[in-house]
Amino acid sequence: MDLIQKALAEGRTMLSEFEAKQVLAAYGLPVTREYLVSTRDEARDAARKIGGPVVLKGSDALVAHKTEKGWIVADVRNEEEAVQAFDRLTGLPDGPRQVLVQEMIRGKRELVVGLTRDPQFGPSVMFGLGGIFTEILRDVAFRVAPLTKADALDMMAEIRGHKILDAVRGMPPADKDLLADALVGVGRIGLEHPEVQEIDVNPLILDGSRPVAVDALIVLKKD
C-alpha cells in the first residue's frame, strides 16, 4: 500500500490513526467516518458533513496514546463546538498541527482486534474484550494467519466474555459474520505486508450490531 511505503520513506515507524484506518478499511474492517483537518473552517465543515455528535482528536503519527496526552475532545455537539475544540487542541503546548474530526460511536460494548508478529508463528491475530481495561481483563484469543472464517468464529466463542456478542440488555447481537471477515482481513494484512509489525484496533465498538474501528494503531518495522 502506498501510504505504508510513504510512511517508511519518511522514516516513520507508525501510521497515524487516519492512515491506519484507511489500511484497515481496505481489508474489510468498518471504520468511523472521519476527516483530517488543518484549519477552523475545515473543522466546521467536517462536523457539518458528519452531522450528529463528533469527536476531535489531535493527529500525529508519532503519538500512540492520545488519551494520556489530553488530545481528545469527545461529545462535540455542533459546528461551533467543533471550532472551539479545534482551537483548544491546536492551542495546547506542543499541540497537534492536524486534527481528526470523526463520528462519535456510542456503543457500550468495546472489543479489541490486533495483529502481532511472533518469531515462531509469524503474523497472528488477536480478538477479545477491548477498551481501557484490555490488559487487566486479558480476555483474548489468538490465531495464526491465514485465518479461515471458521477460525475467526471460533475465536469469538473462545473468550470468556463471549456472551457480550449475543443480544444483551436490549442490545442486538453482534454481526459475527462481519466481525469474522474483519479478523480474516487483519490476518491478510500481516501476510501481505511484512513491513507491518503490529496492529491494534482498540476499541472496536459495537454500534448496534455493527463493529466499528474507533481507534487504530499500526506499527511498522524499523529496518
Binding site: M14, G114, L115, Q120, M126, E135, D200
Partner: peptide, 13 residues
C-alpha cells in the same frame, strides 16, 4: 508497542 504485542504471551499463541 501495542496492546496486542504485550498480550501475546507464547502460551496464548
Amino acid at each position: 508497542q501495542s496492546h496486542t504485542g504485550s498480550l501475546a504471551g507464547a502460551a496464548d499463541l
